[in-house]
């Protein structure tokens, strides 16, 4: 899922400085699961902003709402009246939700209340780890199901660099070396031969390097 975290309160305060009535709009999908922008976080942020802006001597009104999925028009229709009523929308969705709102309600500005961090997985309670870079050309079948594109700091395709030590990456002893994980996994699977072949340069044009991604499915179009 998409993992995000809330922007610092001061940054949010400066973004909404020019507006009086603010709709704080959460999203019920990924950012609810990662405790960044669901109904609960909308409530907490609204309270924090009420207190903070009052302490600053400002008279602002905060409306709270959460939609099921902010990246789809049909769910956002439910809050059309609230959007109309507000001076600005502060979205607690990922960057996709923020842009959907701006497209759908062009007369109103929607601001980002979160920083969208990565595509990842909750690995422990309160811990999220990056798992996919959406490179558009999945290599997991060659790497024992562990992604070197997202999980190796250098996105290497031909095994661990010289900075792999005790299973950790050279950039930070907290970061696992993806290629150590891949090596251990392929060894356990009896498929170490996959680490012996020289892999060719990757076709990055399948990713963002080829321009903004777009998929058109003619079979699904109306």
């Amino acid at each position: 899922m998409i993992i995000a975290e809330q922007k610092p309160l001061d940054e949010i305060k400066s973004m909404i400085a020019d507006y009086q009535k603010v709709l704080i709009l959460g999203c019920g999908t990924c950012v609810t699961i990662c405790f960044a922008g669901g109904e609960k976080e909308v409530g907490i942020l609204a309270s924090a902003l009420r207190m903070a802006t009052r302490l600053d001597g400002q008279d602002k009104e905060f409306i709270e709402a959460t939609v099921q999925r902010q990246c789809e028009y049909e769910f956002n229709e439910e809050v059309a009246d609230l959007v109309k009523e507000a001076d600005v929308v502060l979205s607690l969705a990922c960057g996709i939700g923020v842009q959907t709102m701006n497209e759908q309600f062009p007369e109103k500005l929607t601001l980002p209340g979160l920083n969208t961090k990565f595509l990842g997985q909750p690995t422990e309670q309160g811990v999220w780890d990056e798992r996919c870079l959406a490179c558009g050309d999945c290599v997991l079948y060659k790497t024992g199901g562990i992604c070197p594109i997202a999980r190796c700091s250098k996105s290497l395709l031909n095994g661990p660099c010289g900075g792999s030590q005790n299973g950790k990456c050279e950039i930070n002893p907290e970061v696992d070396c993806a290629w150590q994980l891949i090596y251990d996994r392929l060894k356990a699977l009896g498929k170490l031969d996959l680490m012996m072949e020289v892999k060719s340069p990757k076709d990055w044009s399948a990713s963002h390097a080829g321009g903004p991604g777009k998929i058109v499915r003619e079979d699904l179009r109306l």
Partner: peptide
């Protein structure tokens, strides 16, 4: 060479490239 990661240096906010790796560079 692949190259030391940006996080070691004096511009840790830079974007790394790593389009290809050192082995692919040798072949190229």
């Amino acid at each position: 060479l692949s190259g030391d990661h940006m996080s070691f240096g004096n511009h840790p906010e830079s974007k790394g490239v790593y389009d290809i790796d050192s082995i692919q560079l040798v072949k190229m």
